[in-house]
Simulated assay, not measured.
Amino acid sequence: MSVSRAPAGPSREERPVPHGVIADIAQQRTVLLAGADYLEPTVVGSLVVQDAGGSWRDAEVTPDSPIGSCAVLVPSTVRIADPSVPIAAVREYLRTALGAIGRVALPGTKAVLGSGAARTIGPDVRRGDGIARFADVLTIARDLAAEQGLEIILEPLHRGETDLIHSIEEAAEFLDAHGIGGVRIVADLFHIQKEGERLETVERFAGRIGHVHVADTDRMPPGQGDWPIAPFLGALRRGGCSSDVTIECSWRDLAEELPDALAVVRAADPLLR
């Protein structure tokens, strides 16, 4: 299927909820031509890059249009759940990354804090100390993001990617236990399926969801597998979540496959019916 066959429909401004895709910042034009409402680029490697000395800096890219969300906020080398890493170094990285996002972002842009390798506590850190450090870093990230007019969103990740916060329910409990207000949660169907989190739980916590990621079976594009995309979005909408929805999957050919994937997600979203 060619890009020209992208499904027709209202513009992002007219549509009740936008639907986008995670891809490289260089693919923004391809993504928009294929019918997506927005591109969700990664931060690491796209918006910030590491120089020869190991320091992170703004990549100074200029996207075709401002971004509204981004993913992969922290590289694996910046250990944000390790108290032995100076908090000043973590703060410096976050200030650089969030400044780079703010330069190319719409007001209220969401920065997804998944970054499983970066937040993994690991066997060399006492678990309680690692949890406390991550809570401190999340608070710092929230406040630095607010200075840029951005929003930090916490993403639960399955156990194969991190040893800290694996479900929506765990994320809510973590935020409440540490008194971290003003941080919403990502509902990612991939991690929900891997962790076996029930859709009843998704619906119960839907009011705390600020961003949504979808994929089909084992990260296939929507429509190419058998994961419950429509029941998942239905649970979120019944629970009061009206957030935008980003496709995060593996592609053989983004331009060819994205129009069909978007059509599947839009047909499954109750807010477009």
Rank of each mutant, 00 (worst) to 15 (best):
S4I: 14
R5C: 06
A8R: 15
R12V: 15
R15W: 03
P16F: 00
P16E: 06
G20C: 03
I22E: 01
A23N: 07
A26K: 14
Q28F: 02
R29M: 12
T30W: 01
L32W: 00
E40F: 03
L47G: 04
D51E: 08
G54S: 13
S55A: 14
P63D: 03
D64C: 12
I67F: 07
T77K: 08
I80W: 02
R95V: 11
A100R: 09
P107I: 07
G108H: 03
T109I: 03
A111W: 08
A111S: 11
A117C: 02
A118V: 08
R126I: 02
R127G: 07
R127H: 11
G128E: 15
D129Q: 05
I131P: 07
A132N: 14
D136Y: 01
R142Q: 02
R142K: 07
D143W: 10
E147L: 05
E151K: 14
I152Q: 09
P156L: 06
P156D: 00
G160S: 07
E169R: 15
E173C: 01
F174I: 13
A177E: 14
I180W: 00
G181M: 08
G182M: 01
G182D: 06
V186L: 14
F190W: 10
Q193L: 04
K194I: 00
G196M: 05
G196N: 06
V202D: 07
R208A: 04
I209F: 12
V212G: 09
H213N: 03
M220E: 05
M220V: 02
Q224N: 03
G225S: 06
I229W: 03
A235P: 13
L236S: 11
C241F: 12
D244F: 01
D244N: 01
D244Q: 12
T246I: 10
E248V: 10
S250L: 02
W251H: 08
D253N: 14
E256S: 09
P259D: 01
A261I: 11
R266W: 07
A267D: 14
D269V: 08
D269Q: 04
